[in-house]
Computed example of a mutant assay.
Amino acid sequence: MKLRKASAAAAAALVLSLTATACGGGSGSGSDDGKITIGIKFDQPGLGLKKPDGTFAGFDVDVATYVAKELGYEAKDIEWKQTPSAERENMIANGDVKFVVASYSINDERKQKVDFAGPYFVAHQDLLVRADDSSITKAEDLNSKKLCSVTGSTPAQNVKEKLAPKADLQEFGGYSECLTGLENKAVDAITTDDSILAGYASQKEHQGKFKLTGLKLSDENYGIGLKKGDTDLQSKINKALEKMESDGSWEKAVKANFGPANYKNDPAPKITEGS
C-alpha cells in the first residue's frame, strides 16, 4: 500500500512538473512569465554598460528597450544577459536570449547560424592608441606592434587577414582588459568599432589618455541577432527600428550616448535584413 501511494505521488509530481514546463516555456525561450531576456554587452561604455548601481546604459540598451516596448514589454520586464562576442550565436541558438543587441556586425558567416533585423547603426573599424603615441598612423604600422581585441570579433580577424598580418594579436574576453593593457603599455593599440572606442575614450577616468586614429578601416552594420527562421520576430523588430528612427528617438539616443565624445556618426541606415 505504501509503495502504491509513493508511486502515485511520484506520478502526480511528474505530471505537475511537465505541465509547469509546458506553460512556462522552460528556461530557454528567452521570454517567460511576462519577461523578456535580451543579450547585451556589460562592458562597453556608450553602447552596453552595467553601472556600479546595477542599472544599464548605452545606445544598444536604448535600442533594445525601445524594441522591447514595441513588442509589448516595459523596461521593468527586461532581463539583461551578458553576451560576450564569442558566445552570441550559441546563446541565440540555445534560446538563452530572445535577441541580441550587442554591437553585433552583420556578415555572411554569422547569417549561416542566426538571422538579423536591421541594421540599426553603422560604425567603422578604427584604432585606439595612447595619446602620446605618434608611431601608429595607418593600419600597416601595426605589423610591428602588439594589437588587442576581443575573442571572436570581426575587427580582429580583419586586421590579421587583410590589414596587418604580422601584427602580434592579443585576444581577451572583454575590451576593458585591452584598455588596461594599453594603459600599462602591454599592448600598443586596440582595434574595434569607432563607436566602442569613443565610448571608452570619453569616460572621465580615461579622458586625455587615449586617442582615436580616425582610420575608417571597414563598415560595420550593427544588426539585432535572433534565432534562425524567426521571420515574425524579425519583421516586428524591423518595424520597431523604423519607428524609432522616424519619431526622433534614434537620434536622441545617439546624442545622449556618443555626444560627450564628439563622435560623428553616420545617419540611421536603411533596413535591409528580411526584405
Rank of each mutant, 00 (worst) to 15 (best):
residue 75 A to L: 04
residue 35 K to F: 12
residue 128 L to M: 07
residue 86 A to F: 14
residue 37 T to W: 06
residue 50 K to Q: 03
residue 74 E to D: 12
residue 193 D to M: 01
residue 14 L to P: 04
residue 82 Q to D: 15
residue 164 A to Q: 11
residue 250 W to E: 10
residue 241 L to G: 06
residue 253 A to I: 04
residue 83 T to M: 03
residue 98 K to H: 09
residue 116 F to G: 08
residue 264 K to L: 10
residue 224 I to N: 03
residue 28 G to R: 11
residue 34 G to R: 10
residue 257 N to H: 04
residue 36 I to D: 15
residue 9 A to S: 12
residue 4 R to Y: 14
residue 113 K to I: 14
residue 142 L to Y: 06
residue 230 D to W: 10
residue 273 E to P: 06
residue 58 G to C: 07
residue 43 D to W: 12
residue 267 P to T: 01
residue 39 G to S: 06
residue 187 V to L: 00
residue 44 Q to H: 13
residue 194 D to A: 13
residue 160 K to E: 12
residue 50 K to L: 08
residue 196 I to N: 10
residue 85 S to P: 14
residue 139 A to C: 14
residue 55 T to G: 12
residue 223 G to C: 04
residue 47 L to F: 09
residue 103 S to L: 04
residue 138 K to S: 08
residue 56 F to Y: 08
residue 33 D to M: 12
residue 149 S to Q: 03
residue 236 K to V: 10
residue 264 K to M: 05
residue 242 E to V: 02
residue 236 K to L: 08
residue 33 D to I: 15
residue 213 T to I: 15
residue 34 G to D: 06
residue 255 K to N: 04
residue 160 K to P: 14
residue 218 S to V: 07
residue 264 K to F: 10
residue 160 K to R: 13
residue 220 E to Q: 13
residue 246 S to N: 06
residue 117 A to K: 00
residue 149 S to K: 07
residue 103 S to C: 08
residue 43 D to F: 15
residue 87 E to F: 12
residue 54 G to L: 03
residue 84 P to R: 02
residue 154 T to Y: 10
residue 18 L to H: 02
residue 67 V to A: 00
residue 179 L to P: 09
residue 181 G to K: 10
residue 124 H to P: 10
residue 104 Y to Q: 04
residue 138 K to W: 06
residue 261 A to M: 03
residue 207 Q to Y: 07
residue 63 V to E: 03
residue 228 K to V: 11
residue 275 S to E: 05
residue 201 A to S: 02
residue 75 A to H: 13
residue 85 S to T: 14
residue 247 D to N: 08
residue 152 G to I: 07
residue 21 T to S: 03
residue 98 K to V: 06
residue 248 G to F: 00
residue 185 K to M: 05
residue 44 Q to F: 11
residue 117 A to P: 00
residue 115 D to L: 05
residue 181 G to A: 11
residue 25 G to E: 11
residue 59 F to K: 09
residue 59 F to G: 13
residue 66 Y to M: 05
residue 176 S to Y: 05
residue 269 P to S: 01
residue 143 N to I: 09
residue 20 A to E: 03
residue 214 G to T: 09
residue 33 D to H: 10
residue 86 A to Y: 13
residue 23 C to D: 10
residue 17 S to C: 08
residue 135 S to H: 11
residue 93 A to Q: 01
residue 208 G to F: 07
residue 213 T to W: 08
residue 6 A to F: 15
residue 189 A to E: 02
residue 10 A to F: 08
residue 16 L to P: 14
residue 158 N to W: 06
residue 165 P to A: 06
residue 45 P to I: 08
residue 192 T to G: 09
residue 235 S to L: 11
residue 179 L to H: 07
residue 174 G to H: 01
residue 155 P to A: 01
residue 24 G to Q: 12
residue 175 Y to S: 09
residue 150 V to Q: 07
residue 232 D to Q: 15
residue 259 G to W: 04
residue 24 G to W: 14
residue 125 Q to N: 13
residue 53 D to W: 02
residue 222 Y to G: 02
residue 107 N to E: 13
residue 139 A to S: 14
residue 135 S to E: 14
residue 105 S to A: 14
residue 242 E to F: 01
residue 21 T to F: 11
residue 196 I to H: 08
residue 17 S to I: 05
residue 80 W to G: 15
residue 61 V to W: 02
residue 178 C to M: 08
residue 41 K to M: 15
residue 55 T to C: 15
